[in-house]
């Protein structure tokens, strides 16, 4: 375990050094994401000028939801997004060979080796916005925030596992760009509280395509009393999904070796 922390630290270091090289890009990432955050906030604000609440979410609660979305999305972008988006490319260019021969869990290295440190500013912005919107809640209760320590990681694990399996499919079929592309579209479903969707769609975004796990679920634990059933489901499901992802990766690698030999 210690070994993996050390390795992660060195991924972080190299990521940081590489990112600092491109100053303009760094600054523009910050600008871009500020615009993106602003768009989300403006969008809901405009709608709330015409209506009091959407599916039980009023303006204050929605802001907390957005704050959580920004935080969780920033963590996802820093740690995972780049790796998972590029996995297909790596497979095609044969870079996977180099990673697989290393004496280290290949899923770990494939999923985490590139750290987008330039997005840490996003994380900071997200945390600030979350703090602000939390303070605005009429019934803000600080102990509820402790739930986040459990729910955000579980949500990320769910999201990661499914996203990783999609990327791993590219190891089997080599061309799976389109799956990835559809993923980016479906991801948008997670940018709104899940209660606004119809019953069947909610079931999907809380299970097979767990995009609602990233922000919607943790937000519910902050804005209201804990839903024990949902908590159990989230934890259990995240464990199940990560197990699936590791099984699936092993399966995919079998295809990989047999395909290239």
């Amino acid at each position: 375990m210690r070994k993996y922390w050390r390795i992660y630290w060195s991924f972080f270091r190299t990521g940081f050094i590489a990112d600092m090289e491109y100053r303009a890009n760094f600054l523009f990432r910050v600008v871009t994401d500020t615009v993106w955050y602003a768009a989300q906030i403006i969008g809901f604000n405009v709608i709330f000028t015409h209506t009091k609440s959407i599916a039980g979410w009023d303006a204050e609660k929605t802001r907390v939801f957005l704050g959580l979305l920004f935080v969780a999305d920033a963590i996802y972008m820093i740690m995972l997004s780049d790796n998972l988006d590029k996995l297909t490319d790596r497979v095609r260019k044969g870079e996977l060979d180099l990673l697989l021969v290393k004496p280290i869990n290949s899923q770990f290295i494939v999923s985490l080796q590139r750290v987008s440190t330039s997005l840490i500013t996003n994380l900071i912005m997200g945390i600030c916005f979350l703090g602000y919107s939390f303070a605005q809640l009429p019934d803000a209760s600080v102990p509820r925030l402790l739930w986040l320590l459990l729910m955000i990681p579980c949500g990320l694990v769910c999201l990661y596992s499914v996203r990783f399996m999609i990327s791993a499919t590219s190891v089997i079929f080599t061309k799976a760009d389109n799956l990835q592309f559809l993923w980016h579209q479906v991801y948008r479903l997670g940018m709104r509280p899940d209660q606004i969707y119809s019953r069947w769609l909610r079931m999907i975004v809380l299970s097979v395509i767990p995009v609602a796990m990233i922000a919607s679920v943790p937000a519910r634990f902050v804005v209201g009393p804990p839903d024990w059933g949902l908590a159990a489901w989230t934890v259990g499901w995240s464990i199940f999904l990560i197990w699936c992802s590791s099984r699936y990766w092993k399966l995919a690698l079998r295809f990989y070796t047999s395909a290239s030999s």
């Binding site: 270091r13 940081f16 050094i17 600092m20 090289e21 100053r23 760094f26």
Partner: peptide
């Protein structure tokens, strides 16, 4: 070289 060098270079 290193993180510090990168920060300086930034």
């Amino acid at each position: 070289p290193g993180i510090w060098g990168s920060l300086q270079g930034f």
